[in-house]
Design a protein around this nucleic acid. Structure first.
Length: 543
RNA sequence: GCCCCCGUAGCUCAGGAGGAUAGAGCAACGGAUUCCUAAUCCGUAGGUCAGAGGUUCGAGUCCUCUCGGGGGCGCCA
């Protein structure tokens, strides 16, 4: 919608001999019209002109049969109002082809890879991972809607120090189960799930503890990580999140890709030895300090495999790479960008979304969480308690770089405070209208043929316009990578509907009016359902 | 000490590429149901946008500094 208006204004400028891109916005106050643009004020400085006079000129040059009114306001805003038929015809178009409404081509021909969750297979997912999953998955759906070809990937850290600590932790628990006293590993995982894994391991591999300690731990590491990964996959499935690929860090080592990547850096003279370790000169690409890629003991660091991994991603030919990380990894961003650049790729290829912490609030008290200490609430537990829809929706009600307090009691409450139900209820209510129509023997009109002109109330036109903003929203989210905007939009749209529902009746005797209103709420339903789908939330037919 | 994020109504937070009179939900108070679902709606009240400078036609939004909260600064991930 915006794009069409933008074109109208740019056309007017061209008539004035000005070639310039224009920004068109929805004004916050409907009294200012349907669309507003600040071109005159922006250009005034550049052209040394009086903004209001310039605005007047532009207004005079705007010629379009669908523009109802055009005026200059304030310091030089140009406010436009479109004719009713312009809106209604767009709305009819939506009803004619609801599936493709909001589907854009801004990303057509572009491939995006989004890597998210990527939690180490050392313990079950918790709510923080859930936030990353909700953000990543919804963003993927929205980018796809905007026309991008999207690939979702989970990077499995199954080769580093952390999984080894998991193996050691399991081994220690096995020893304890045998009644042997051992020291629990430093920084080991103390969660109860490790004891469960130990019991399972002893049942499955009764001979295991007879083999040498190092060998046993190696076995347990490999096996334990796989077991936990199975659990993670199950949790994600229950959360409605799927991946196109699971990329293994171990694979990077098995195929020597890590060494090959380091070799490339060495050839470029970007590696050096100091104090027995191997360093990557990342400062040459804007990092604060150089980073170790191979420790003095010969073990590669996490960064080493990440250099190989990101170089490989870039090589796979994506037009954009998105990494969704916990905010505690923010210091890692310059390193990885440096690595990309050092390997010969454009660092801007990579967009990193940092997800801030989630605090669980129960009974007004914050619950502290730590994977190591085992004091976290698993995502699966929360899903059982609260339900997938509420969890996903609430995790997307904040922009991702802001802390989020997840109030369990509120999410569970089957009542008015719960923001999820408000939107779902709008969908259910509309379904109910159609159910009632059927019961009363009122025929459902064929949507593409309904005459919408009986819609005359301000509230009705407000709903029409709000619904038609949906494609612009998709574009804005795809550009800004801020999926939380969807929850706000859906809440606003639902509010407009609930208000209307409480003041006006749809199923009237007057057939033309009735059918126009049925078409109106049908349009709302289409968009609410699609918006919820993009968030991974169900749209129930009754509640 | 250095880096990142945050600071907006009593609480939790929006503020869509600098725009016009700063919004929503909850909590508080007062109302609406012979009706297509009251998980809804209507109304009242609530603000030094942490503070101070700066950039400009215009700043909650951009820059600098101060204060406060969180996170990160490892041959951990």
């Amino acid at each position: 919608m915006k794009a069409a208006v933008k074109e109208i204004v740019e056309g007017a400028l061209r008539r004035l001999g000005i070639e310039e891109g224009v920004q068109v916005d929805y004004p916050k106050d409907p009294r200012f019209g349907d669309y507003t643009t600040n071109v005159a004020m922006v250009l005034a400085g550049k052209l040394k002109r009086n903004p209001r006079e310039l605005a007047q000129e532009v207004v005079r040059a705007i010629e379009h049969p669908m523009v109802e009114s055009k005026e200059v306001a304030g310091g030089g805003f140009i406010n436009l109002r479109m004719k009713k038929e312009w809106w209604l015809s767009a709305f009819s178009h939506l009803l004619r082809d609801p599936q493709s409404f909001g589907t854009l081509d801004v990303g057509t021909g572009k491939r995006v890879q989004i890597e998210f969750v990527s939690a180490n297979p050392t313990g079950p997912l918790h709510i923080g991972h859930g936030r990353g999953a909700a953000v990543g998955d919804s963003l993927a759906r929205i980018l796809e809607k905007a026309g991008y070809q999207v690939e979702k990937e989970y990077y499995v850290n199954d080769a580093g120090r952390q999984v080894k600590v998991l193996g050691e932790s399991i081994w220690a628990r096995c020893q304890e189960l045998m009644g042997r006293e051992v020291e629990f590993p430093e920084g080991g995982y103390r969660g109860g799930y490790v004891v469960d894994l130990a019991k399972q391991a002893m049942a499955e591999f009764p001979d295991l503890l007879d083999s040498p300690k190092e060998k046993a731990i190696e076995e347990l590491t490999r096996w334990g990580a796989e077991e936990i990964l199975k659990g993670i996959k199950g949790d994600l499935e229950a959360f409605g999140v799927s991946f196109d690929s699971w990329y293994r860090e171990r694979y990077l080592y098995d195929t020597h890709l890590v060494n090959k990547a380091l070799e490339v850096l060495r050839e470029k003279g970007l590696l050096y030895e100091r104090e027995g370790a191997l360093w990557f000169a990342s400062t040459r690409f804007g990092d604060d300090k150089d980073r170790v890629v191979k420790r003095a003991n010969g073990d590669p660091t996490y960064l080493a495999s990440d250099i190989a991994y990101h170089a490989l991603k870039a090589k796979r030919g994506f037009d954009m790479l998105i990494d969704v990380w916990g905010a505690d990894h923010h210091g890692y961003v310059p390193r990885v960008r440096a690595a990309l650049q050092a390997m010969g790729y454009n660092a801007n290829l990579l967009q990193v979304l940092l997800i801030q912490m989630v605090s669980l609030v129960r009974g007004g008290q914050k619950v502290s969480m730590s994977t190591r200490e085992g004091t976290f609430v698993p995502l699966s537990e929360l899903l059982n308690e609260v339900g997938k829809d509420a969890v996903r929706f609430i995790l997307l009600t904040r922009k991702c770089d802001a802390h989020l307090d997840f109030d369990v009691d509120l999410a569970k409450s089957q009542s008015e405070e719960n923001p999820v139900f408000y939107v779902q209820y709008a969908h259910a209510r509309i379904s109910s209208i159609f159910r009632t129509a059927q019961e009363r023997g009122i025929s459902i009109p064929s949507w593409e043929e309904v005459d919408l002109t009986p819609l005359e109330l301000d509230e009705e036109m407000a709903i029409v316009k709000k619904v038609l903003q949906f494609p612009d929203l998709i574009e804005a989210i795809a550009r800004s990578l801020e999926p939380h905007r969807m929850t706000y939009y859906l809440h606003e749209l639902s509010a407009a509907f609930h208000r209307y529902y409480n003041h006006h009746r749809v199923l009237l005797e007057n057939r033309p009016m009735r059918e126009a209103r049925m078409a109106l709420v049908k349009g709302v339903q289409v968009v609410v359902k699609e918006g919820l789908r993009l968030l991974g939330v169900n749209a129930p037919f009754r509640m």
